[in-house]
Simulated assay, not measured.
Amino acid sequence: MSTPAPFIQCACNACTCEANADHQRDGKHYCSQACADRHPDGQPCPAADCHCESGVPFMERAISESQLDEAIEETFPASDPISP
């Protein structure tokens, strides 16, 4: 019989959810991408009974890494210098 994995608390300050290994930021584990990205645009926690997004001050909300990656991809190759 295997032992159940220990409960790992989501690293989002006010979150009450269990962390998921698929969502990480700065070496910490989060329950969702919304929590890992610090709730950009007030994106809610996926758990219906958790409202941790209300505990993140507006100025601390970050643009998600996936949004930055997408923005970079959209500007490529337009951002490259013109070849001589």
Rank of each mutant, 00 (worst) to 15 (best):
S79F: 12
D49S: 14
G42Q: 01
I63A: 05
E65H: 10
F76K: 09
I63L: 10
P40V: 00
A19P: 03
C35Q: 02
C50G: 07
S54V: 06
S66N: 08
Y30F: 15
A78Y: 14
C17M: 03
K28Q: 15
A48N: 06
I72D: 12
Q67G: 04
F7N: 08
P77Y: 08
D80Y: 15
A36N: 03
H29W: 09
E65Q: 11
D80R: 12
D49G: 11
R25M: 08
C10V: 06
A36H: 02
C50R: 03
A5E: 08
F76Q: 07
C17F: 01
F76T: 14
I82L: 12
P46M: 10
P57F: 00
D26E: 14
R38K: 11
H23Y: 15
D37C: 07
C50D: 13
A11T: 00
A71S: 12
H39Y: 04
Q43N: 09
Q67M: 07
D37F: 03
V56P: 00
T75A: 15
R38Q: 08
E74I: 10
K28M: 15
P4D: 09
S54N: 14
K28N: 11
S54H: 13
S64M: 01
G42M: 00
I8C: 02
E18A: 03
P44V: 04
C35A: 05
A48K: 10
K28D: 06
V56Y: 00
R25K: 12
D49R: 07
S64V: 04
E74A: 13
Q33K: 12
D69Y: 07
Q24T: 12
S79P: 04
C52T: 13
P4F: 06
L68T: 08
L68P: 00
G55S: 15
R25H: 10
M59P: 02
Q24D: 10
E18S: 01
T16E: 11
H39E: 02
F58A: 06
P4E: 09
A36P: 04
Q67P: 00
A14F: 07
D69A: 13
G42T: 00
A5G: 05
L68N: 06
D37P: 06
C12Y: 02
C15S: 04
Q24M: 13
D26T: 05
C12M: 09
A19M: 01
P77H: 08
S66E: 10
S66G: 03
Q9S: 02
A71Y: 07
E70F: 05
T3Q: 06
N13K: 10
E53Q: 15
H51I: 03
I8P: 01
D22V: 05
K28H: 11
D69L: 09
R61F: 07
C45Q: 05
A48H: 06
V56Q: 04
S2M: 04
D22P: 05
V56T: 03
H39A: 01
T75H: 12
P4W: 02
A62N: 12
S32A: 14
C50S: 05
A36E: 05
D69F: 08
A11W: 02
A71R: 14
Y30H: 05
A5F: 04
G27K: 10
D69R: 12
I63V: 14
P81F: 09
